[in-house]
Design a protein around this nucleic acid. Structure first.
Length: 511
RNA sequence: CGGAGCGUAGCGCAGCCUGGUAGCGCACUUGCUUCGGGAGCAAGGGGUCGGAGGUUCGAAUCCUCUCGCUCCGACCA
């Protein structure tokens, strides 16, 4: 019984393992439209949990939800120069409003061409800014704190389920403030919301920090991110928060009268996380048997599989399971009795692949003895052997919430150990970096686990920064961020130039 | 968008070189047996071989084009 629930192990090929984990875990599948995905009920359930948890935090920090149009006039996008530059290459454009039937063939009706093409939003700074310009008149209107849950489209060349898709779902927060200090505080506050959310809800430890200038959002003065380490050592940018300065305010005339009656430009921010987080959860916690869902986002935290035998005794078994279900529900636990008429062994492995945190199997003997036999998805096996536990029903029910908490904490601890244990901080020269990453810079299958490097640098700007980026690129590396939590830099030297160091940054390969 | 590979049943694949209108395993259906677990036997159902052209008496197989997927690269909040 050494069989694994997936046919490819992470070791053999992490990319292939990921695909299979997503598919066999019933999360999502490819759609008929290139680069877009169908999110299946189990995957959607996870997203609903993400939305519920994060939405609460967004509201608790004073933001209100609203909704802006999917279509953005092309002229809007053109307003902020860097913004255009950053997004022009990947925008979907609507040019017609009618089709015509020509000899049985549908064609674009040339008489129905739009005067001004509409962009399918890649992000909503410009259309929300347009509203802000009308909404903000006085300092009394500030701060203006808005969020929306929406889908956006970016025509990506290379897509991967959840991690990078042409259409994806996200929340985007947009705020306007009276001054830099207030806007910057907002930017940092939301970054912290993301960090706390990622760690406590997704059990995904991250490092919050500021992106280097060359990795900034087009049109931002400062971009901050949370970066998570996947099981192959690569970094995943899991959330971003931007201080936009007055760029968009100036481009869109978002002004207010201050206490002195003077017209002043607002300072704006934007911040977002997307369905990419789900890819992060999969690559953080999954194992060779499939997904492992943190209980806080598992659509079903406990799944009960009755071992039905198509005999009269089944009725008793079902009744026993229904009682157990009711008791667990009373504890506030999301529970499902899987009565689907397929073999129980098959059901067990389906739930293993989906990553249900606790899988209970109830047979006649359990029912008769008043027991519960269960498996923890986080600690499924001892070696190759599947571990199952048996407890008195009352005892299990009483401890169920604690058990789920233990699983949540265990997944976090495991991921945290990986993150903390795989940031090398001893490199001081570029040669060190080359020696460490260079050996596996090739494109051989799998690729050895390398993690990140935490190094000192002089924080160059302009052409000097470009040079650094180029040198890193040769090793397929990028600067992920400069952690907010900075070690002392005095007496340290820049890894790239040998000049006195100004900042500690994390370097790694990324998604 | 460049390089490479791959599209044949829901999934994984064989067949293609050496054209003669499809096959295997798992899954699925039915029956019997089994039953603390990813079961056995038997009988079945399911595919316009990604799509479009072409060559040919005949194309999954040869040629051209096209679409999609995967990996690598470029690009990328």
């Amino acid at each position: 019984m050494s069989k694994r629930a997936l046919s490819v192990t992470r070791e053999q090929s992490f990319p292939e393992w990921y695909q299979e984990a997503v598919r066999d875990g019933d999360m999502a599948e490819q759609s008929p439209v290139r680069g877009c995905m169908i999110i299946k009920p189990w995957g959607w359930g996870v997203w609903e949990r993400v939305q519920a948890e994060l939405d609460q935090r967004i509201k608790d920090t004073g933001h209100e939800n609203c909704y802006f149009p999917l279509f953005i006039p092309m002229s809007f996008i053109a307003k902020e120069a860097e913004h255009v530059e950053g997004f022009a290459k990947e925008m979907a454009v609507v040019t017609h409003h009618r089709l015509k039937n020509e000899g049985g063939k549908l064609v674009l009706d040339p008489d129905a061409k739009l005067e001004e093409p509409l962009i399918v939003r890649p992000t909503s700074e410009t259309i929300i800014g347009d509203a802000f310009q009308r909404w903000v008149k006085s300092y009394r209107d500030l701060p203006l704190l808005i969020n929306q849950w929406a889908n956006v489209v970016r025509w990506e060349m290379r897509t991967r389920l959840f991690l990078r898709t042409a259409e994806f779902l996200w929340q985007e927060g947009h705020t306007a403030h009276a001054d830099r200090e207030d806007a910057m505080a907002e930017t940092r506050k939301m970054l912290e919301v993301y960090r706390e959310f990622s760690e406590t809800v997704l059990a995904m430890p991250v490092i919050a920090g500021e992106k280097p200038a060359n990795e900034r959002f087009p049109g931002a003065d400062n971009t901050y991110s949370i970066e998570a380490m996947m099981q192959d050592g690569k970094a995943l940018q899991a959330g971003t928060s931007h201080y936009l300065g007055t760029h968009f305010a100036e481009a869109q005339n978002i002004q207010f009268q201050n206490q002195d009656g003077k017209l002043t430009f607002c300072h704006t921010t934007s911040w977002g996380v997307s369905t990419r987080l789900i890819g992060g959860v999969i690559m953080s916690h999954g194992d060779d048997d499939g997904l492992r869902m943190p209980p806080k986002i598992a659509p079903r935290q406990i799944v009960i599989v009755p071992m039905l035998r198509d005999k009269p005794e089944d009725a008793e078994l079902k009744a026993y399971c229904a009682e157990l279900e009711a008791e667990l529900k009373a504890q506030g636990i999301r529970v499902l009795v899987d009565l689907k008429p397929i073999k129980s062994a098959e059901k067990r492995w389906n739930w293993v692949r989906r990553g249900a945190p606790v899988i209970i199997e109830i047979g006649g003997r359990d029912a008769a003895g008043g027991n519960v036999t269960f498996m923890r998805r986080d600690k499924l096996r001892d070696g190759d052997k599947v571990i199952s536990h048996t407890q008195a029903r009352a005892e299990f029910v009483a401890g169920a919430r604690t058990l789920l908490e233990a699983i949540q904490d265990g997944l976090f601890a495991e991921a945290k150990a990986r993150l903390d244990g795989n940031i090398v901080t001893t490199m001081t020269t570029f040669a060190d970096l080359e020696a460490y990453y260079g050996a596996t810079a090739g494109d051989e299958e799998g690729g050895e686990f390398k993690g990140w490097a935490g190094v000192m640098w002089a924080k160059p700007e302009g052409p000097a920064l470009e040079t650094v980026a180029e040198r890193l690129k040769a090793l397929k590396l990028t600067i992920r961020n400069a952690p907010l939590d900075q070690p002392p830099v005095e007496g340290k030297t820049c890894l790239f130039t040998g000049e006195p160091a100004k900042e500690y940054v994390l370097i790694g390969r990324s998604y």
